[in-house]
């Protein structure tokens, strides 16, 4: 089976966010594979181990994203592709990112494409389904279970707490929800092997795209931090009295119950 996992390099979830010159400051921040994309890589490896085939991890970004691709290779992916847009593009929105990925994938005959359901930085969750639509293949989002049998997959999908079982035709794009699996840590031999696995680097030219083809439709005009939440009141006194006071405060001051 020809499997692709789409990954994005994101801030570590531990990072505090600050703003400098109207942009999120990146100095000194730790970067990771977007956690939802880690589920995607893990699932791709498991599907390959069960059904055979090859896992390619794909990302868009700068040379710095090589580190995250090597991590995915160390987990067990077979090949990696970096579409480096650093020299060509200042900005990229979901329209542009999906156009690039779909353009790369259109002649690759992927049987299965797995992405995270959302990236923890931009948080739009658009790129996966957009890619599927551009490739005219079926998709199912926020999945927690995947079983493949020939040209059909049985997928369990998390829908705001309910779970839907879906029979889906292949080829298929799915996006991973937490609970799908427990991503493995790269082993030491895995890390050694990853250094020798193929990592292909492409630019827009190589996939016959021009800057104009992926010009942003949505433009960021400002970034700001939410007002710092002031620590409120820690109640004091006898526990029973504290609870009484709390309920009164919620009723009369905050007016939320």
């Amino acid at each position: 089976m020809n499997i692709y996992a789409l990954v994005k390099r994101t801030f570590d979830t531990e990072e505090k966010i600050s703003v400098q010159n109207g942009q999120i400051a990146e100095d000194g921040a730790e970067f990771i594979i977007n956690p939802y994309d880690e589920y995607a890589v893990e699932e791709a490896i498991r599907v390959r181990d069960e059904h055979g085939g090859e896992v390619t991890v794909l990302t868009i970004g700068s040379e710095e994203a090589e580190k995250q691709l090597r991590t995915a290779l160390a987990m067990g992916a077979d090949k990696a592709v970096l579409i480096n847009t650093e020299d060509d593009l200042d900005e990229l929105d979901e329209f542009g990112a999906s156009t690039i990925i779909a353009e790369y994938l259109k002649d690759k005959d992927a049987d299965l494409i797995i992405a995270g359901n959302v990236a923890i930085d931009g948080g739009s969750g658009q790129v996966g389904p957009r890619v599927a639509e551009l490739l005219d293949i079926n998709y199912v989002t926020t999945i927690t279970e995947l079983k493949i049998d020939g040209d059909k997959a049985t997928v369990v999908r998390d829908v705001e707490g309910d779970s839907e079982t879906i029979e889906a035709q292949m080829p298929l794009l799915v996006t991973a929800q937490q609970g799908l699996n427990d991503p493995r840590y790269p082993s030491l031999p895995g890390i050694m092997k990853a250094k020798k696995k193929p990592l292909e680097e492409l630019e827009l030219d190589d996939i016959d795209l021009d800057e104009d083809d992926v010009e942003v439709k949505v433009e960021r005009v400002d970034v700001f931090l939410p007002p710092e939440k002031q620590a409120g009141r820690v109640l004091e006194g006898d526990l029973q009295d504290q609870v009484k006071e709390l309920v009164q405060l919620l009723r009369n001051e905050a007016k939320v119950i």
């Binding site: 960021r220 005009v221 970034v223 700001f224 939410p226």
Partner: peptide
């Protein structure tokens, strides 16, 4: 952790 303002 942050917000953005965007236009189409």
């Amino acid at each position: 952790k942050a917000f953005e303002k965007v236009k189409i």
